[in-house]
Amino acid sequence: MLSMLTTIAPMFIVLAVGFLAGFAARFRQAQSGLNAFVFYFGLPSFVFSAVLAAPPAQGVPAAAIPLAAGVTLMLSVLTYAATRAMGARAASGAAPTSLAATFGNVGYFGMPITLSTVGPEAALAAGVLHLTHNMIYMTGYPVVRTVATGATGPAGFRAAWRRRLWPIVRKAVLLNPVALSMAAALAVVLTPLAVPEVLSESVAMVGDTAVPVALFAVGLAMHPALEGVRSGGVPKRAITLGTAVKILVLPLATWLAVLPLADHLGPVWAAALVLMAAMPSSTTVFVFSEEYDGDGRLAAAILVAGTLASILTIPLAAEFLLL
């Protein structure tokens, strides 16, 4: 436990530095630029270099993507139903609770933590699971909430899809920088193509900045989340449920689903699946909840609580997997 905590602790320290920097307006104002850098340059370069440097991959197990998607979506629906059953006050926040309880920080947290604990051979698994998770939520939640809240307007779903939803889907799926970088890396790994050394070293330099800048940006993002929490008006039972599902129930359910398929998945994919599920909520849950639910305070509370609790739960999960 102590050795695993020592391995992961530097990442939380960088996050804490970002949080402390967020008390200064100049850094809070830089948050959007930092996020854009990580999304378009840092993380794609990190993924490209990690996949190229990884030992030869055995491919993607057939059950990996359906398992990751199935467990997450099932718990999202169950969390929504459980929140609705808690009474009128909690029921109004059922959608953001289910979102924050299952949409994890698989990019900024998940990929570096998985590679640092499992090893470089987990690069392909971490990249594929990151894409699977993000594509489900970055496309699914906007579509579902737009339809459910009647935000399609008098012009109907087709017009809303063309004007609002298709640009989101296109960006998340077709033009996703991480997906494009992984496709490029696999093209190099699986074909006789070669990357000139000067180019691969340049990409690696940019990729080396991804983790610290991403974690710093997560620390900055905690400030608007905390401001939402301080404003009050969020049901504590929904916060408790969402946090418990995200950092305890989701990784446990994923582990139980992985057990009968362990031989098919192999140790690397099995560990990556559980570790990715153990990540705290993505900072995007606050943004999405603000935009599509009209109030991001509940999602923010689950994000903050889960991130703090994950300082202990992630090392425990990693230690358990590597026993």
Rank of each mutant, 00 (worst) to 15 (best):
158 R>Q: 10
135 M>T: 12
46 F>Q: 14
206 V>W: 07
162 R>E: 11
44 P>V: 04
274 V>T: 00
311 I>S: 10
266 G>K: 13
67 L>R: 07
254 T>N: 03
74 M>L: 15
81 A>M: 12
11 M>G: 13
28 R>L: 14
39 F>V: 15
182 M>Q: 04
13 I>Q: 07
132 T>S: 06
25 A>W: 07
294 G>W: 03
53 A>K: 12
181 S>Q: 11
15 L>N: 08
61 P>C: 12
135 M>D: 04
266 G>F: 14
18 G>C: 05
310 S>C: 08
195 V>T: 13
281 S>N: 00
114 T>Q: 04
196 P>Y: 10
182 M>D: 00
113 I>W: 09
264 H>G: 07
85 A>D: 12
224 P>I: 10
154 P>Q: 04
144 V>H: 07
42 G>N: 11
71 V>G: 06
241 L>M: 07
117 T>Q: 05
115 L>W: 11
188 V>Q: 05
104 G>N: 12
161 W>A: 12
138 M>A: 15
61 P>D: 06
295 D>H: 11
309 A>P: 01
95 A>D: 07
35 N>A: 10
187 A>G: 15
156 G>F: 01
3 S>Q: 14
256 L>R: 11
234 V>Y: 00
319 E>Q: 13
246 K>L: 00
179 A>C: 08
104 G>D: 06
290 E>T: 15
307 T>C: 01
114 T>F: 00
4 M>P: 02
210 A>W: 05
147 V>I: 15
63 A>T: 11
153 G>C: 01
120 P>I: 00
106 V>T: 14
16 A>K: 03
273 L>M: 14
